[in-house]
């Protein structure tokens, strides 16, 4: 029973954080709140028995992604412009319709924590029962991750590598150095604001503050 109350408390905190993200216009606060959201969800993962997931979420969500978003803010701007009313008006029915469809989808789902749900009776008993004899390591999550589903994890590692290469191609200085040399030869000075002159002479360099 205390577990239920902890879950309810964590959920209320999560909902409050999400609402605060909706309301806040200061992007620095938004990024920090998203870190708080990740940390709270890590706590919820612990109460749902997913300790490995909680560990990852705490390290990744509250650590790395907050740092990356702050880095983006330093390179862009920290204020969100005013939101158009028509956009908000249109968003509401879309969201309500999606929510209704999703809730309809859950109506024939098995109950929370039910031991005879299909998900619990398919292959999980094999993993839990045979890991001791087939793999011989105590952490079943690691056994499934690295051995039973090794192909899967190889693919995920390749995806992470590819995303990293993509980031380097988009914003790394590696390819840029050569281009800047070319520009210097032509005698043009690069605009520190980056844009503006290249986009047909409009001067909206602080357009997002408006």
């Amino acid at each position: 029973m205390p577990e239920t109350w902890i879950n309810i408390f964590l959920f209320v905190m999560l909902a409050a954080t999400a609402l605060a993200v909706v309301r806040t216009r200061h992007l620095f606060a938004v990024v920090m709140l998203s870190g708080v959201f990740s940390l709270l969800s890590a706590l919820l993962f612990v109460t749902l028995d997913a300790v490995d997931v909680a560990f990852t979420e705490a390290a990744v969500g509250a650590g790395i992604s907050t740092v990356l978003m702050l880095g983006t803010l330093a390179l862009t701007s920290r204020r969100e412009g005013p939101v158009s009313a028509s956009r908000q008006l249109w968003a509401l029915p879309i969201v309500v319709l999606t929510a209704a469809a999703l809730v309809y989808g859950t109506l024939d789902m098995p109950g929370f924590g039910s031991p005879d749900a299909p998900a619990q009776r398919h292959i999980a008993p094999h993993y839990l029962g045979e890991t001791a004899s087939e793999i011989g390591i105590p952490n079943v999550v690691t056994a499934v991750l690295a051995s039973y589903r090794g192909y899967d994890t190889l693919g995920e590692t390749a995806v992470i590598f590819t995303a990293g290469v993509g980031v380097l191609l988009i914003i790394s200085e590696l390819g840029r150095r050569r281009r800047r040399d070319d520009e210097d030869e032509e005698g043009s000075v690069r605009n520190p604001e980056g844009a503006g002159d290249r986009i047909g002479g409009n001067s909206r360099s602080d357009g997002d503050i408006r």
Binding site: G71, A74, L75, V167, S172, E173
Partner: peptide, 18 residues
């Protein structure tokens, strides 16, 4: 580790706007 650090280098290596 390699991807996370190189992504951080890529972001931090740019001149900040503010």
């Amino acid at each position: 580790a390699g991807v996370m650090v190189s992504v951080y280098y890529a972001f931090a290596g740019r001149p900040p706007q503010m």
